[in-house]
Simulated assay, not measured.
Amino acid sequence: MKVGFIGTGSMGSLLLDAFITSGALMPQQIFASNRTLDKVNLLAQRHPGLNVCSSNVENVKNSDIVFLCVKPLQYKDLIDEIRSVVTPDQILVSITSPIQIHHLESVLTCKIAKIIPSVTHLSLSGASLCMYGSRITVEDRLLLEKLLSFISQPLHIQEAHVRITSDFSSCGPAFISFFLDQWIEAAVEKTGIGRDELTTLAGEMLLGTGKLLTESGLSPHEVQERVAVPGGITAEALALLKQSLDGVFHQLIATTHAKYDDDLNKIDVLFGDFKTL
């Protein structure tokens, strides 16, 4: 199996690194291309044997599966470049949430999947959100999910739910890290404790809490009940958080969905310029 990566920016290079680190792919199986060739050359230095492609066309011609790791508004130029060389037996995987499967199926003859990754794949963990086009077979799905299982927990979702699920799996690490960063900053200022010590402690706490939710079967509410003794310190602090954060998460969801809808409208206009198959 040969796997291509078009776009080796933050997420493209993360996926590439994770697949190699996990043993899912050997560098010799990977073809990479990017608008800035120096970025691909750096990856090839880090992973000897990786195939550097001088163009996206060369990449597609050599790959069985191609991950499209470019920004939403770059898709039109990319598709204009590769649409004449894709074949019906190839699988193209978009990792860009506003790009809809029907957009790609209307202008490309190949099989289309959509997978939303997460920065957590750097540690070979977290969930990858999987959506499949009408041409994807059961065998194709199993192949993709086997590959993804080396670096994540593949979860099949409805494309209509991609935004809200991405809030948790993809944006969530940033949201949780922001909360921890603010908490650590306050603790350092209040007590003089070392930042590194607290960061390590917070990471272990977060890892353990995740295991309680995924392995022990506890719900978030049940975790709170296990920790917060009525009238105790945790209960007092939780009451403060509930009061202070009232409505914040509804606003957070409204914000991410508004940006997504705006991006989607731009993509609809972009793909309206294509002649469909």
Rank of each mutant, 00 (worst) to 15 (best):
L155A: 09
G126K: 01
R83C: 11
H121R: 04
Y75E: 08
V85W: 13
S84T: 15
L155H: 09
I95Y: 01
R163D: 09
L73F: 06
V162Q: 05
S125R: 10
S152P: 04
E139N: 11
L155V: 15
I99F: 11
I82W: 02
K71T: 02
H156T: 14
V86E: 06
V70C: 05
T137H: 09
I136Y: 00
I136C: 10
I99Y: 10
S134P: 01
A160Y: 02
V93L: 02
S128A: 12
S106N: 00
L143D: 13
P72G: 03
L124N: 04
M131A: 05
R83W: 03
P98E: 00
R135N: 01
L124C: 08
Q153Y: 10
T120A: 11
I136F: 01
K114R: 08
Q153V: 14
C110G: 11
V86S: 11
S106H: 01
E105S: 10
A113P: 03
F67E: 09
I95G: 02
S149P: 09
V85Y: 13
V85G: 07
Q74C: 04
I151K: 15
V85A: 06
L147C: 01
S149H: 11
G126I: 05
L147Y: 06
T87R: 15
V162N: 05
S134L: 05
D80E: 12
Q74Y: 06
L122R: 10
K114T: 05
I116C: 12
D89G: 13
I101G: 00
I157P: 01
G126W: 00
I151A: 11
I112G: 07
V66Q: 15
L144V: 06
L148I: 06
P88C: 14
L78I: 08
V86W: 08
T120I: 01
Q100Y: 08
S128M: 14
H121Y: 04
Y132Q: 05
V86I: 09
P154A: 13
L144C: 11
I79P: 02
T96A: 12
V119Y: 13
A113H: 03
P98R: 02
H161K: 07
E159N: 07
L104E: 01
R141T: 10
S97E: 04
I136E: 02
I91L: 04
V107D: 02
L92G: 12
K71C: 03
V70W: 08
H121D: 00
I164K: 08
M131I: 09
I157W: 07
I115V: 15
T109K: 15
L143W: 13
E139L: 10
L147M: 07
T109V: 14
I101H: 04
I116R: 08
S84L: 14
T96F: 05
S125C: 13
I91G: 08
S149W: 12
E145N: 15
I164R: 07
A160N: 00
A113K: 02
T87N: 15
I115L: 12
L68N: 06
F150Y: 11
S118P: 04
L124G: 00
T120M: 05
